[in-house]
């Protein structure tokens, strides 16, 4: 166990800096970002487009390499920018689920390819594991013979969650995973995340610009702006008593689009 790592902490980022050098101008995408995620916890990361919230997820799972800073998972420091290595602990779920699958392959092919080798025993073992994960994510076995285009948006997003869990990872990094979905489909996927957290102890970093969704799902929330963390804390406390002016502005925008109560 790393020093300072809390006992049930499954993922931690320390002083992460990330800059992009484009057309000789430097953009600071992440400025000294630190966070922790506990087992079975959902941590929301909220902010507008360009706040750095997606970059943070991509850096944590090794798709991008941080300039400086450390990322710890499972009690060890992860090699920077190594998505394959980080993949044993965590998997990323993207907004566009269709783009996450090979359009020319059936779901069965796409799913088996991503199974942790030690967990796919010869014979029927791997199939059983797939079937039980499909069940847990609210899917049915007949969908396995379909190509991604023949799935609905909600089914495809569930498939990407099922595939992520098949790898054996128990941390999900979710990047706006419900924003392309209908209201009702979004609600069902949100329920799925809560069920995975409660029943399987899955831990989730949830990036969203939707504070209402965050208030419904997240134990804690982190507000980001221009690559920096403005505030962090218990979701209810942050949303009821925000410390930063910016959080207030985000809340005001969310309230603008809030529905009245059904009588």
């Amino acid at each position: 166990m790393q020093e300072g790592m809390q006992e049930n902490c499954v993922l931690r980022g320390e002083n992460i800096y990330k800059t992009y050098d484009r057309d000789s101008s430097i953009t600071e995408a992440l400025k000294n970002v630190s966070f922790y995620l506990q087992k079975g916890e959902i941590l929301g990361i909220a902010g507008e487009s360009g706040s750095g919230k997606s970059t943070l997820l991509r850096t944590v799972c090794g798709l991008e390499k941080a300039d400086t800073g450390k990322i710890f998972a499972g009690g060890e420091e992860l090699p920077a920018g190594d998505a394959r290595y980080a993949g044993r602990y965590m998997q990323m779920i993207f907004q566009d689920a269709y783009a996450s699958f090979d359009p020319g392959r059936t779901m069965r092919k796409s799913l088996t390819e991503f199974m942790a080798p030690e967990k796919s025993s010869p014979g029927g073992g791997s199939n059983e594991r797939i079937l039980s994960l499909l069940y847990e994510t609210g899917l049915t076995a007949d969908l396995l013979d379909r190509h991604p285009a023949a799935l609905s948006g909600g089914q495809c997003q569930r498939m990407s969650i099922a595939r992520a869990l098949l790898t054996g990872a128990d941390i999900l990094l979710c990047d706006e995973i419900t924003s392309a979905l209908d209201v009702s489909t979004q609600a069902r996927v949100a329920e799925l995340l809560l069920r995975l957290k409660r029943q399987k102890g899955i831990s989730i970093l949830l990036v969203s610009h939707d504070l209402a969704l965050i208030s419904q799902l997240c134990d804690r929330v982190m507000i980001m702006k221009d690559g920096a963390v403005l505030e962090e804390g218990n979701t209810r406390e942050v949303l009821e008593r925000p410390r930063s002016q910016y959080t207030n502005e985000l809340l005001a925008a969310a309230r603008e689009l809030e529905l009245p109560e059904v009588k």
Binding site: V183, S215, L239, E240
Partner: peptide
């Protein structure tokens, strides 16, 4: 539909 819309602070 209305029930499925997430609301702040619920």
């Amino acid at each position: 539909l209305l029930m499925d819309v997430p609301r702040l602070g619920r």
